[in-house]
Design a protein around this nucleic acid. Sequence first.
DNA 1: ATTTCATTTAACCGTTTGGTTAATTGAAAA
DNA 2: TTTTCAATTAACCAAACGGTTAAATGAAAT
Lengths: 127, 127
Amino acid sequence: MSKGSITTEETEKLSAVFGALADPTRRGIIERVRVESKTVAELASDFAISLPAVSKHLKVLDKAGLVHRAKSGKYILCSYNPEPGRAAMKWINEQHRFWQDSFAGLAEFLDKRKTTENGTDNNPDSM
Amino acid sequence: MSKGSITTEETEKLSAVFGALADPTRRGIIERVRVESKTVAELASDFAISLPAVSKHLKVLDKAGLVHRAKSGKYILCSYNPEPGRAAMKWINEQHRFWQDSFAGLAEFLDKRKTTENGTDNNPDSM
DNA sequence: ATTTCATTTAACCGTTTGGTTAATTGAAAA
DNA sequence: TTTTCAATTAACCAAACGGTTAAATGAAAT
């Protein structure tokens, strides 16, 4: 398996993490629970949205692994888990490295656009 | 303005970037145009989806600033712009630093949950 | 000037999302 | 055991999403 390849599972996880972070309310939740654990009701009052709305956001964040919910007495305490964030940063960071696949990538680059399967020149640079 | 605060503009940009990265096809587009510029048709054939579908994805990526589209002859060449990715990484990375707001954050943490506006003890830790 | 053709826009479709209120759950308090 | 109440689920709604096919656009080629 080449260095740059990725499993379906990893792909879905990345989609879940980026999707979770795409909503400003959910990023706000992270910014709060990161500092200290919060109950669902505390978060709801912070954002002036209903309890069920917060509950749904928490489910999304939980599914992405970004937030952990632990029962504490009659409350649920939400805390931050940085691990999925690291995986997301890793993906972004890899896009900044040009020679990600090293030799394979180099060879592919040098050969690309010289020829095609049917022999037609479809190289846009040549126009 | 405190160190951790963020403008509406920055918030919307972050939502656009994370939202763009949430789709596996769009991440695939980035992985390809990052290595070398691609035409829209080339990308469409890579993913076996229609041309308009790719065009829509490119619009999302363009709006997020992650992809640049430049006319080259009768083609459009799509290339990668790493800058928005860096901003996204920066946000995630800041969530990993506990004392982001330094003194203000420390004071807030020490005082929190001791008292509330109406005097009621709503500290979940105390139950 | 006309034709060709890469790309985008328009119109549409089913699913997902982010919100609501009302009903349900289930553990703590009484 | 009964009551209380934090949180979730159910049911619903409008808007956004990701895809399609058909039509429009606009620059290059003829």
